[in-house]
Design a protein around this nucleic acid. Sequence first.
DNA 1: AATACCTACAACCGCGTCCCG
DNA 2: GCGGGACGCGGTTGTAGGTAT
Length: 256
Amino acid sequence: MGRSPCCDKAHINKGAWTKEEDDRLTAYIRAHGEGCWRSLPQAAGLLRCGKSCRLRWINYLRPGLKRGNFTEEEDELIIKLHAHLGNKWSLIAGRLPGRTDNEIKNYWNTHIRRKLLSRGVDPATHGLIHARPPPVSNFSVPFPKVEENNWGLSSTSSSSGSSTRASESSWQIHTYRCPDLNLELSLSSPLQQQEKEEEEEEEEEEEEEELMQGGKDSVCINCRWGLQMRSKECMCDAFVGLKSSGLLEYRSLQMN
DNA sequence: AATACCTACAACCGCGTCCCG
DNA sequence: GCGGGACGCGGTTGTAGGTAT
């Protein structure tokens, strides 16, 4: 059962790469180019798994890689892209020349998460930590009668698995949950649902372009709902942009 | 100086997807 | 259409080096 291992683990090196291994891999790829990672180790005389070679090449040996600290501009770009794309590190890396997905992922988990937390922003959702629930009058959605604590000031330790180390355990992310409701907001008209789906790909590309141009008319959902930011300056740019060219539309509200 | 704890990041693992026969 | 191999991705772990006690 299960897939066969990618290589014979009994006869491969693991752990940190040596200078000699790096040199061998670099020399081989310079001579023969990338490709067929599975057979590369043997051909290059390396006792490594093909995956390991690929990772080493892509993350460290490949020419054109930027090493060293991320700039403030890169930080902000990563935050914007993450708000837009989520944990699609490879897509994010594609927007940052010279940076690798692994590097960005690590940087996110070690630096940017903390940076966002210090701004009062939940790095997982890009929403506010300790945010007050929006005034009920702003909703036309008929929620069930609210019981005590029904906004469910829920405490969850920050999300992403074991990278949330003990040092972060003191952080409690408080998010307001709608009681027993999985409320999915869709911004599309039900009548146009099918067309919309077909257009989504195009729009996504356009949005990405806008994003790259500085988020154009993006306004964060918190501003849209008139929520106060904890810090004085609004960080709309850090959130998924909702186009300010039109009102937030609830034409299609799906309650699951 | 010794030890515990923390941080950063390189590397590994397993799964999903793609491609080809 | 199906199955299997290879690749790519994201999550997770291991560990070296730094800092605090």
